[in-house]
Design a protein around this nucleic acid. Sequence first.
RNA 1: GGGGCCGUAGCUCAAUUGGUUAGAGUACCAGACUGUCGAUCUGGAUGUUGCGGGUUCGAGUCCCGUCGGCCUCGCCA
Length: 598
Amino acid sequence: MSDLQRTHTCGQLRKEDAGSEVTLSGWVDTRRDHGGVIFIDLRDRYGKTQIVFNPEHNSEAHQQASTLRSEYVIALKGKVTERPEDMVNPNLDTGEIELFVDKLEILNTSETTPFEITDDTEVSTELRLKYRYLDLRRPVMQKYLAFRHKVCQVARQYFDRNNFIEVETPFLTKSTPEGARDYLVPSRINRGQFYALPQSPQLFKQILMVSGLDRYFQIVKCFRDEDLRAQRQPEFTQLDLEMSFVREDDVINIIEGLMVDIFSKVLNKEITTPFPRLSYHDAMKMYGCDAPDLRFGMTIEEITDIAKKTDFKVFQKVAESGGQVRGINATGCASLSRKEIDELTTFVNQFGAKGLAWFKVDESGLTSQIAKFFTAEEQSEIKERFKAAPGDLLLFVADKESVVSQSLSQLRLNIGKRNGLIPARPHSGGNEKEFNFSWIVDFPLLEFNEELGRYDSLHHPFTSPRQEDLQILEERPLDVRARAYDIVLNGVELGGGSIRIHRPDIQKRIFHLLNIDDETAQKRFGFLLEALKYGAPPHGGIALGLDRMVTILLGLDDIREVIAFPKTQKATCLMVDAPSEVDENQLKDLGISLRKPE
RNA sequence: GGGGCCGUAGCUCAAUUGGUUAGAGUACCAGACUGUCGAUCUGGAUGUUGCGGGUUCGAGUCCCGUCGGCCUCGCCA
């Protein structure tokens, strides 16, 4: 190890330290060689300090300094000196001082890095992930990781204050084929058998309630073997909790309190509670999705009734065959060109919409290629319904409900961005961040899976139906409401939870509805059904996507920015090159032989 | 599994309808320079145009395949 042991960090020294002898260590950030005097910005996690090598101060150090290059790791001892007033750098916390070097030690050299270690360079994701250790050297990345750490610390303290106990649950556990695809781990000791990595600790936390833990939380990795998105990684972190003897409001209150705490302690911001609540039904009706962005209006309106009366065949046919016609008012968008509207049409095509009908609103009424199919009354009825004013553009999708909802929900966001209704990201020069929380409640318990011709849980099979809906469980299952709730932030589902079923008879009825027979239920969830027999308390909980939450709080849009070592879209790690092939011997131990792809 | 965008110097990108020796900025290297902080000035080096095949007199450019990255639909109880 070096003779020089640091006494301060690179973000620490101030005017008051002038005159003292200090030792600093860190990376060479930039080098400015004036021949006579050489300046180095020395960087570590805490900041940067300007280092001065002046031949008149110490010629030996100055000579050594000419060999320094970017990312060399050095230690140096010297004298803190106050900078003359006109040489202060206001962009640096340490900008009022600089360090005149007496002794320099090069702890390590560095090859030229594949990209520059600065906050503002644009480098491909591929390179950043391959050289993640260099990427993480960028101050902004360290800021993100520290921010995430702080969120976790605040959460831990909050839960501790509120009597929650952090309990670790197993990673090597049991496959549950419902839901997402499992990551499987072969067992060597039990040949031919597999563990699964948990998609969430759902059943364990319920079991902990049966155990009487009363309040559990965990910040825990979960694994889902599904295709990736900017908002979705195969391994991600949940802030998971479960509580006994609670109703919906108790869980909601705990989470609102947590959010208040995080905002005040991490962002130094006040937020007001309670968060508004919106029923699933209303969310779908007004926004076309169950995680609406409530930072702006532009709600969806339905005109199926008008559509039925018109001479416009497309509308008519859809309206009469059980579909619906709904639309949004893209306020002020009448100026969009034909080409731009065509682009919007292509945009909704990807959600299954066959087309996009539109009207431009002007002083005289509605104009478009299809306006002639609508009588004056129908036109004014439509105008009325959308409170349309001259300059507006009305956009319609006619199809089955799911297609209409999804298309319009996405179209609404698209127009919202176009019209500047969604605030710009702060790092892209935007202004104050806006955070809009809401709860979506009154979810249906089940949905009908057309593909498989059966009912699926909307949430998961352990969600409790409402007590008063139990009597119609078998007769009108789609009308049964769940005791579930989702928390939404700026149009992103942050998390969801529910009051669980705590009685084995009801749990069995749900399994039956889901077409899971006794034998299968026993095989997969027998331990839960068994546990529920022994005095399981009423309980409920929630899980929040930590990666998503941190991403949004930082005003970013890619969760990879807040994950130290994320995967690519093909679920690989470019840095360690995982997944990879394994030795034949390892497979032999596991009793596995690979089937060659055809 | 489907659709789309992309791959050119270490990095970020350019290169007319297919046309001669593939350029710029930056980084890098060398020299100059005692107050810079995106240092400056002068000079220099840098390419299997992801890979394989095809079309063509001629391919960075067109076609097929393949690998990789990104976005997206499906999927994600």
